[in-house]
């Protein structure tokens, strides 16, 4: 199985998420992660969809089908090497009085993770990194117990010098702010 990151640029109107996911569902392609946000340009949304697939051909077909959604401006399929990508994970870790205290220094220095919220009985730690790094940290912190764990899903930007504006020169968008 290869990991593919599909970046979909769409007009920011109602129901696009549904229009895109139904294309994957129909082909029984499971979404590993999905993030949506407005791009640097006003009214343009960006979907980052991560899937695992063993057929590049099938992924290319998928990309072409997504392109058919009228509101979709452009679709790009990437391998990991084509993109800079990252995710954020949040861990809620219990800190009972009698337990071994968490090692903030290792968490900060080795795992590049930060405590973002302190509570009497637990802390919330934010870890940014690749999926592997997040799971390395997961393994490290597991002995303390994990009350809650959430991942943001991947965000990715292509390493190519081209931007959306290069692909859609006829568009004349403003920045969002």
């Amino acid at each position: 199985m290869t990991t593919y990151t599909i970046c979909v640029f769409t007009e920011n109107t109602f129901g696009i998420l549904n229009k895109i996911t139904t294309i994957l569902t129909r082909r029984r392609i499971n979404i590993e992660s999905l993030t949506v946000s407005e791009t640097e340009r006003k009214g343009i949304s960006r979907f980052t969809i991560v899937i695992h697939h063993d057929s590049r051909e099938a992924v290319e077909k998928l990309v072409r089908q997504i392109r058919k959604v009228i509101e979709v401006l452009a679709v790009f399929g990437y391998l990991n090497e084509d993109i800079a990508f990252n995710e954020i994970a949040l861990f809620k870790i219990p800190t009972p009085i009698d337990a071994k205290p968490i090692d903030i220094e290792t968490i900060n220095k080795v795992h590049k993770a930060w405590v973002v919220y302190w509570h009497l009985n637990y802390v919330i730690i934010q870890k940014t990194g690749s999926e592997e790094e997040i799971f390395e940290f997961f393994d490290y912190i597991k002995p303390h117990g994990i009350l809650e764990f959430v991942r943001s899903g991947r965000v990715a930007v292509s390493k190519s010098p081209q931007t959306l504006v290069d692909y859609l020169p006829e568009a004349n968008w403003e920045y969002i702010q």
């Binding site: 990309v63 392109r67 452009a74 790009f76 399929g77 292509s158």
Partner: peptide, 10 residues
């Protein structure tokens, strides 16, 4: 590798 499905406007 990168596959782009953008077409030129006609």
């Amino acid at each position: 590798m990168e596959f782009n499905e953008k077409q030129t406007a006609v």
